[in-house]
Design a protein around this nucleic acid. Sequence first.
DNA 1: CCATAATGCGTGCATATACACCTATCCGGG
DNA 2: CCCGGATAGGTGTATATGCACGCATTATGG
Lengths: 164, 164
Amino acid sequence: MPQPPSTTCLCTLVRKSDRVLNRIYDDALRPANIATTQFALLRNIQRQPSPPALTELAEIMRMDRTTLSRNLHPLERDGLITITAGPDRRTKSVSLTPDGSAKVAEALPFWQSAQETVATALGPTNRTAIEHQLQSMLATLDLLPKTNPRKDPDYGLRTTNYAQ
Amino acid sequence: MPQPPSTTCLCTLVRKSDRVLNRIYDDALRPANIATTQFALLRNIQRQPSPPALTELAEIMRMDRTTLSRNLHPLERDGLITITAGPDRRTKSVSLTPDGSAKVAEALPFWQSAQETVATALGPTNRTAIEHQLQSMLATLDLLPKTNPRKDPDYGLRTTNYAQ
DNA sequence: CCATAATGCGTGCATATACACCTATCCGGG
DNA sequence: CCCGGATAGGTGTATATGCACGCATTATGG
């Protein structure tokens, strides 16, 4: 007996959660003068064993490649990262500067404070459960076939129709 | 014995999930020529017993009031909603136009397709669990005190310091 | 070797997001 | 009635997001 389809939009629910959480974290990080997205970028760059290429980092962040590219500009402008030529003349690698590492260290206690605020509100069990659920969801959705327009000859026609 | 603090940023995890889900839903909704955020707005307006005021709708969507205001512009421009004067000369109310209702009806099957894609990938149990966890998280975080700058005399000074 | 596909990035465009600051309106106390 | 606080919205600015499209470079097949 299949469940009745939910009338709750999972996407919208996640988006609402994102808005609420982002405001909590941005608020906590404000004394360190950095936003949550940018802090997350620095930490995800730092976490890699070697300076990642742009496309690689974009996949880690689940960002569109072009979104990542633009999100890095403020960090580069502020001297927190450097973007250097990669092994290939096409590729570019991103690394933290000393200022970037310092910024992560500076912001870390504020980030921890936000983590604690949320963990306290939810209770440790719920927080852990949500983390696991989302991690698992990401892993699962990563396996879905990516819509690759150029591989599907019909796609271009359909797109044209949409545009009307 | 308290758990060791997590090194996983819950905010970033939710954001990554949001990016992935939004692309799936936007992709599914593309034939109906509407984006997920805007579809969610239409549905949340439609769901209210009476045309909500802007601030009211912003709270429902967990959006900043000014964000909502701007997000409504494309919908108004395309004739899917109307923004009329509220009971108060300060307030404005949002309602769906017939075209707006038609757009919801048109997009609904595509939205359901996205819901099914995700539900199938996750399995119904996981999908339900995530929904409940997030609903519960939202309810909990709604109870956190809102940072109200104007009520805290020190806040202005701190802000000034951040700006340096 | 050369034509073609595949890969890695950037730009133009439109929407999405929220903070600081502003105006207009309403509501209470005097 | 008037004034100050509270409430409802909008604007300026900056970042965030992703699609369509284009360019350069590399890999591949003949």
